[in-house]
Design a binder for these strands. Structure first.
Lengths: 144, 144
DNA sequence: GTTTATGCAAATTCTTTGCAATACT
DNA sequence: AGTATTGCAAAGAATTTGCATAAAC
């Protein structure tokens, strides 16, 4: 299966009609090493309008094809979910640790390190985790 | 020591001149059960201008008197730090778990549950944690 | 032909800054 | 007098929506 079909398949699995534009948006996210903001995507996809990207991302997020990360940078970032099912169980180890460098404003996806889940009091139903460590990244530390 | 003096003392410990306005802002945060956004504080303190609240919060944050929480609600929330020293070491157990209810948009501070810290690769220097679990709170769950 | 998706423009919301006036030392 | 703080206004940035056109089914 070529890449295009693979991406299309992912969208279909999440009940999203794979339009050309949506595939472009998802492809950009999928091929990016890091999570991307709406602005990042707008810069990467000059042919697609920002509102369309926004609506695609909202749909993806709602269908659990991507998840949102609040890294404290002031803009939400998006990243493909790792699994191929569209329920919202947090136990699927989908969410990993992120590191936001306060110097260079770069958000690192530490895909090997899954986000920890703490025990909550009864009655809280957890559906997602936002786990972001902030500080200085190795690269910025070396410059000082 | 009465409460006013106690609050004043906290500001002084963090090298912040305790003006009347700053004490009002910190008092509101201090007495609130939950973290508050700039808008929450503006509503609570009708006599104080939003920009002044903002500048107070920025100063508090910089001096580690309060910390910021990105709960994914779209606006940053603020909460007093638990300790009385102004360095930025994450190991002081200052940061606790937060829970954001996607139904009622309320952010719960789970003060008894400290935010977990994962091991990072060498070179990453962690100075803060943002750990927010998202889902449905007990109250909203009961309503369904 | 009806529904769905997209682009353009503009509205909203949240955050931040410039500057003049006020208060403090 | 000189510095620091505050309020008012407005700018900037990120997100979201209304509506007309275009595409898909």
């Amino acid at each position: 299966m070529n890449e295009h079909n693979e991406l299309e398949e992912r969208l279909l699995l999440h009940d999203i009609k794979p339009t050309a534009t949506r595939l472009l948006v998802f492809k950009a996210l999928y091929e990016s090493e890091d999570a991307m903001s709406l602005n990042d995507l707008e810069d990467a996809l000059v042919t697609v309008d920002k509102s369309t990207i926004f609506r695609s991302l909202s749909l993806f997020s709602q269908q659990h094809l991507v998840h949102e990360i609040d890294d404290g940078s002031g803009s939400v970032k998006y990243e493909p979910c790792c699994h191929d099912h569209n329920h919202e169980d947090v136990s699927d180890n989908d969410q990993h640790t992120h590191f936001f460098c306060t110097e260079c404003q770069h958000t690192y996806c530490l895909k090997g390190i899954s986000a920890p889940v703490v025990e909550l009091p009864n009655g809280f139903e957890v559906k997602g985790i936002n786990y972001v460590l902030k500080g200085i990244c190795p690269s910025c530390k070396a410059k000082k």
